[in-house]
């Protein structure tokens, strides 16, 4: 895998190479170079299978990480390509022309993270959360537990911490 990284580095600006297992590596690429890199990997390096496309929210550094995971059926190796997006303006080029199913992934990311993929067919249609008005739910600053407690009527919890309860019961004065 290291060899592939070296080879790719000649043409693309890559960083943060991590080899998790002999057959699995991750690498970060510049945003502008992603589509050329994926096309190159698919057409020349036989990474023909788009395994998944997903996003990770790094709220602390105000970034979204997109991970494009590709698989090579001949060498049975995987490479994960990371792209960092500005969280305030998350826009990424679409890859639906490379893989048909990518438009579904992109539609989901648009709905769940608010990442836009201009040109991806139906990217703005709601997929899972039809009628949802709030912020994109998979963003880390959306607190689902808080939302649920505020929105729905739950049974009131009636629990105690042993340590605090024992203090109240056994030695309230100390």
């Amino acid at each position: 895998m290291k060899q592939l990284d070296t080879e790719l580095s000649k043409q693309f600006t890559l960083s943060d190479y991590v080899e998790q297992r002999p057959e699995l590596a991750f690498v970060t690429v510049e945003k502008q170079q992603l589509v050329p890199l994926l096309t190159y990997l698919r057409d020349t390096k036989k990474y023909t299978h788009l395994v998944t496309l997903t996003a990770v929210d790094w709220l602390e550094v105000n970034q979204f990480q997109l991970t494009y995971l590709l698989h090579n059926y001949e060498t049975h190796t995987d490479i994960g390509i990371r792209v960092k997006l500005d969280r305030d303006n998350p826009v990424m080029e679409t890859i639906h022309h490379l893989w048909e199913q990518a438009r579904v992934y992109q539609r989901e990311l648009h709905e769940m993270f608010g990442i836009d993929f201009p040109g991806s067919p139906g990217v703005e249609e709601p997929m899972i959360l039809e009628g949802w008005q709030g912020p994109p739910v998979m963003r880390r600053d959306f607190d689902t537990a808080k939302y649920s407690l505020e929105t729905y009527d739950h049974r009131k919890r009636d629990t105690r911490e042993p340590e605090i309860y024992m203090k109240e019961k056994l030695y309230p004065e100390d």
Partner: peptide, 19 residues
């Protein structure tokens, strides 16, 4: 760290990407 693991389910490749 991050990793991806896969297995063959009845529908095909099933995978977990964990960060």
């Amino acid at each position: 760290g991050e990793t991806y693991v896969r297995a063959e389910s009845t529908r095909g490749e099933y995978g977990y990407y964990m960060v």
